[in-house]
Design a protein around this nucleic acid. Sequence first.
DNA 1: GGCTTTGTTCAATTATTATTGAACAAAGCT
DNA 2: AGCTTTGTTCAATAATAATTGAACAAAGCC
Lengths: 182, 182
Amino acid sequence: MESPDPTPAKANAGGDPAPPAESLLPLQAEAIEVFVRLARLFGQPKSVGEIYGLIYISPEPMPMDVIASRLNLSKGSTSQGLRLLKGLGAVRPIYQVGDRRDFYTAETSLKKLVGGYLDDAIIPLLNQGQDRLAHLQRLLEEDGGLTAEQRVFFDERVNKLNKWHERAHQLFPLIRKFLGTS
Amino acid sequence: MESPDPTPAKANAGGDPAPPAESLLPLQAEAIEVFVRLARLFGQPKSVGEIYGLIYISPEPMPMDVIASRLNLSKGSTSQGLRLLKGLGAVRPIYQVGDRRDFYTAETSLKKLVGGYLDDAIIPLLNQGQDRLAHLQRLLEEDGGLTAEQRVFFDERVNKLNKWHERAHQLFPLIRKFLGTS
DNA sequence: GGCTTTGTTCAATTATTATTGAACAAAGCT
DNA sequence: AGCTTTGTTCAATAATAATTGAACAAAGCC
């Protein structure tokens, strides 16, 4: 509560264990919260949401060490989080003259964000699913120990699974198209 | 630490710790795998995927105790999993004459499955998000300590968040409509 | 070359989430 | 009524996932 921030000089001289934030506006803290929830919704760790959120709601590009210290994250987490975000295309490294560090800005086009997520996280799962369904089909064809009745039932169910899969495949381009209008 | 299992009685005389299945066909085991993956994709525990998968790929409706023993799940997990699935409308209790237990069948219409998930899991999150965004907006309006430049930036970002939210709201009916054709 | 800054990797630790199992409630049966 | 079957709840435990931090690599600078 007190001791608002003694550091005039450089950083955090005392041994206080959790300097809650270096300098986040309440507005920024709240925005980061929003992204943490979003990250969880998409099955990503909290830290990834925090990192993207901070970059999104910061006027200037930031380097890794600043991100880590603003969010009280370790270098390790921050590095991994940034890698993931770069992979998704959610964050872009920016060259800053006179500074050896990589600075990052947020990609804010919904199309690109969702597109990256679909490409990198969902499509691979779908393809994996396709392989599994093929395997299932093979099992069904090979298994000689089924009664006719059983065979009819399993056939129907496996077929339905294939239909679902196909539907999902059709759905994604549609989502892209819809969000592309953003 | 050992003392594997004193029960000499009937099944499972050796100390093998995981009698893998009571009587699942390989085909069924494989199908259940598929659903476990699906469950994880949708942020649900493995056991939920197993339960739905077993019901989906079983010709006959099953009561809770049979589900638990086929999957080697505890009564507790099975009960909770079934509750969740009932809540989503993914599974339907069926009255079986001469049996006091509730039997369950799988709802296999993609429309209903996804619809239930959207209604019960996603829409509430979206609404929560809406509240948060409103709060964010309020913070932005209240905060007097911002430079004009800062205000412009934050305004733009918060606005964009609102646009995303709106897009999401528009997207869901579209998904429903698309899957409704199943 | 040696020193410093920047960033990555990964085994160990910590936090989070799922599962179990025992206690309990409800309802059928005799 | 008591006894049994069916199902739920929830605190304790186990399993899984995220985070840390220290060791390392790469590259700039002097």
